[in-house]
Amino acid sequence: MAVADHLDDPLDARVPTVIADDVHIVYRVNGGSGGKGSATAALSRILRRDRGESRGVRKVHAVRGVSFTAYRGEAIGLIGTNGSGKSTLLRAIAGLLPTESGRVYTDGQPSLLGVNAALMGDLTGERNVILGGLAMGMSREEIRGRYQAIVDFSGINEKGDFITLPMRTYSSGMGARLRFAIAAAKNHDVLMIDEALATGDRKFQIRSEERIRELRKEAGTVFLVSHSNKSIRDTCDRVLWLEKGELLMDGPTDEVIRAYEKETGK
């Protein structure tokens, strides 16, 4: 479904929260592969000259002309094979990457939650809950009021008092669950989740999916990047399918995922 289809829909008296207008994102990578005299290096030099690029700098066109409008109350899945530009697009929406051309407009403050979201490994989980809450704009009083719910939601204390240990002692799954629990404790204008639901057992995934539905009801917009089609189906009502940086399809979840599975066999 194209963006124009959404704009013509009378139901869309809703409030737009994110508008991507012909967004292009280009990475510039210093250095090249291959030795000076290798065929790969020679071809790279020829291509750089043809494109007018500086010596030793390679351009990667990660997102190519993507346009869409997201509305308050939507949960939108982003799907595509590895390297399709999903995470790059989320980082641009969050304001962490500049666009080469085109614009991203947001209503409210976007928050990006990734598996690698920065918490401090030498500090305890307890201390990281406080710092993470403060970083999201919560007051100390709000953090105190929600602290136990965050710990319980993450489930990291189910096998011992891990919340009082440094985060460097956590498994990657435990750390990711705590990051999600901290982010999910606050109502967001726009919340972007990059693969967080892929961590943890099914019980945690169900809790996460329920919380995403609550965030939608509380007038936010949620974007979810996941390689789990089941998580997308269970959580999202709309899906954007990207491949090689281009938006191939934008529409209802079942329709887009069926087309994706038919094309990719995944």
Rank of each mutant, 00 (worst) to 15 (best):
Q148L: 12
G132W: 01
V151W: 06
I182Y: 02
A2V: 08
A183V: 08
I93P: 00
K36G: 11
R168Q: 13
E158F: 04
G102Q: 05
R146P: 01
V66P: 03
K266N: 12
M138C: 12
L89F: 15
S33I: 00
A149Y: 03
K203G: 14
G85L: 09
L191R: 05
D122A: 07
A184E: 13
I257V: 14
G31P: 10
V57E: 15
R144H: 07
E255L: 05
A198H: 02
T81K: 12
D189R: 07
L247G: 09
K186R: 15
R207H: 13
L247M: 09
I76K: 02
F204E: 07
N82A: 12
R91N: 06
A259D: 14
Y170V: 06
V23M: 06
A176M: 10
L89M: 14
R72Y: 01
R144Q: 15
D254V: 06
R168I: 06
G114D: 06
W241V: 09
R216A: 14
V26W: 15
E53F: 09
H227L: 11
Q205E: 09
L240M: 13
L215C: 04
T199M: 14
L47V: 04
A185Y: 07
K59S: 13
S139L: 08
V23Q: 04
S33N: 06
R55A: 14
E210S: 13
L134N: 07
V239W: 06
E210H: 07
C236F: 05
F153D: 14
G160Y: 08
F68I: 09
D234C: 00
G200K: 01
R103M: 08
D189S: 14
R238E: 04
A70V: 02
K203M: 13
P166Q: 11
T221W: 04
T253E: 12
G73C: 09
P166V: 11
T106L: 05
R51A: 14
D201Y: 07
S54K: 15
R28F: 11
D152P: 00
E100L: 04
I143P: 05
R144A: 15
M138I: 01
A70F: 04
V104C: 10
P252D: 01
V26S: 06
D8N: 09
T124E: 06
N82D: 11
L78V: 11
G175M: 13
M249A: 13
L240W: 03
A149P: 00
M174C: 12
A13C: 04
K262P: 00
E195R: 03
I25A: 13
V63F: 00
R58Y: 03
L242V: 02
D189K: 00
S38Q: 05
K86N: 03
R48I: 01
R72S: 15
P166H: 07
R64H: 08
E195F: 01
Q205K: 13
G251N: 09
A2Y: 07
E100Y: 12
R72V: 11
E243K: 08
M1I: 02
S101K: 13
F68S: 07
P16Q: 10
K262L: 10
D107A: 12
L78Q: 10
E255T: 15
G132E: 10
D161L: 03
P10Q: 01
V190N: 05
G31T: 12
A176C: 13
H61D: 09
